[in-house]
Every structure is written in C-alpha cells, then in structure tokens.
Amino acid sequence: MNKKVLYFIRNKTIHFILLMIAVAIFNFILIDLSPIDPVNIYLQQSSVSEAQRAALEQYWGVGQPITTKIWNWLINLLQGNLGTSLIYRVPVSQVIIEKFEASVVLMLLSWLISGLIGFFLGVVAGKNRDSWIDKIIKIYCYILQSAPSFWIGLLILIIFGVELGWFPIGLGVPIGTMESNVTIWQWLARLVLPVLTLSLVGVAPIAMYTRNELVEVLSSDYVLFAKARGEFGWPLIERQALRNILLPALTLQFLSFSELFGGAVLVEQVFSYPGIGQTAVAAGLQSDVPLLLGIVLVSAVFVFVGNLIADILYYFVDPRTKENESFDV
C-alpha cells in the first residue's frame, strides 16, 4: 500500500513537472510567433530617446534567438518571477493572486451548487426513468449543454437585473465606492448572478452522467435481487445504488475544472466580475504578454489539480480498485 502511494506521488510529480515545462514552452513559442512588439506596448506611444528604447529592447529581449528568450523566461519562472504586467504595472504574480481569489470564490460556489443539484436531478431522472420528469430533466440538460454559456448569462442578466431589477448590472463595485470599501453584502450581491449562471450551465453534464449511471446500476442483477427481497423506492436507491454512482459523479465533477474555468472567463465578462477570466481577456486584448502567460500557467495548474484529485479518488478512495489492486500484487 505504501509503495503504491509512493509510486503514485513520484509519477504524478514527474508528470506535473514535464507538463508544466511543456505548457510553458508551448505558450512561449505561440506568443513569440505573434507580431506583437512588447516595447511598443510598454511605451504606449510615449516618445523616448533611442538609448532608452535600446535599453528596453534589451530588457524585453527583442532580436534575441528564441532559445535564449525561453531559457531566460524559464529561469525567471523557477525563481517565482513572472515578470511585470504591462497594463497594471505591478508584478504579474500579485495581479494573479488578487484576481484568482475572486474567481476561486465564484468557481468553488458554482462547482458545489452545480454538483449537488446536478447529482440530485440525475438521481431523480434515473429513478423515474422514461417518466415525464425524466424527459423534462433530459430536455433541460440537452438545451443547457448546447446553449452558449454567455448567452445564458445575458438572459439571467435581462431577467434578474433589468426586468426585475433585483441585482445591479455590471461593474464589480458600486459606482462611487473604492474597491477596498465594498461591504460584504454588496460584494455578495455581485456574486449571485454569476454563480447562478455558472451553476445552471454546470448542472447539465453531471445530471446526464448520474442519470445514465443510475439507470445502468438499476438494471443490474443485485438490484433485481434486492427488489425480489421486497426493497423498493428511495430506500432501495439509497442502499443499493447511491454509493455506486456517487464516486464516478464526483470524479467527473473534478475532471470538469477545465470547462469551469472556461465558463468563468465568459461569465465574468458578461457580469463584469473582476476575476481571473476578465483579466485574461483584458491581457489578451491589450497584448499584455507576461500577464497572459502567467494566467495560462496558473490555469494549467488549476486543471492539473482537478485531474489529480480525480485520480486520487479513483485509485485510493474507490474500495473496488483497492480490492483489485491486492489481487494484482
């Protein structure tokens, strides 16, 4: 058992390091291919002397071969130095930490809500297979999976923000207040609609998956046997099926970190929520190369963590894999 854990940790660490290096180099090459001139963006059309310009070009590595540039950037990266953001004029790591905090609250809340509601809907649909409630849930999931998430965000904004007027439209903080003076309630009010949107969109895959798993479990022999013994209704689901489908559903939910991040980018843009997604878009539109590279790296770590937790669940928590493993050794 201990050996297995050690192997797991070793393999995952090697995988993580290789993946990060690959992501870093890949992104760097992609950005380097672009016709963006970092010096011009840094200067933003202000006039400088030739000597200052040359110094800046030296700093940004204009004209150096790409291998040298990648090497310098990787060395800086290892020291935790991601460079300075061109639009915020502060170190990239500082921007990312600040914005990521806001996004993590948004993503975590919608992750939890969509997971719980999705699992519940999936169980209800699977239990009442082919009934009207199953059909409604299926249609709902089908449409939600196909609809663009930013459009759902716009609709929610129209309904709750404009027509009903319950929530403020746009802007991370109310006009006239400093960002540091926002009360917790004002801040929560801004959080409700983005969380609602992301949760609504995130419900679909988990509900469909849970439904199909439950239908499969319910057609198994041991459920048939349980029915023959006289079990029925919720107790049957609770005792025979729930544990079987809970773990795969949880695994799937952890594997969805990538889509969660992508959804957050769009939803933050719709609701002007000051998180990492909006920052990434701003960085991309204004060619803030160091910030964009930093955000991509952080997002890759985020996705990796999700996959890692899913793997841990699969290998160490699932009692069935434990048993199989002991036979193999």
């Binding site: 992501v23 992104n27 291919l33 672009s34 878009v281 991509v296 890759a300």
Partner: peptide, 24 residues
C-alpha cells in the same frame, strides 16, 4: 498522447485566445 495531454491541460478558451494572438 502527450500532445493530446498538452492541449487538454489548458482551458479551451485560453488556448484559442493564445493561438489567435499568435496568428496576429
């Protein structure tokens, strides 16, 4: 397998943003 892994490790939207920037 590793190329697929690499493309899957970055959120899709960010990847499209990166590539579209690199193509100008």
């Amino acid at each position: 397998a590793s190329v697929i892994d690499l493309f899957g490790s970055i959120p899709h939207i960010l990847l499209i943003i990166l590539i579209s920037i690199s193509c100008g």
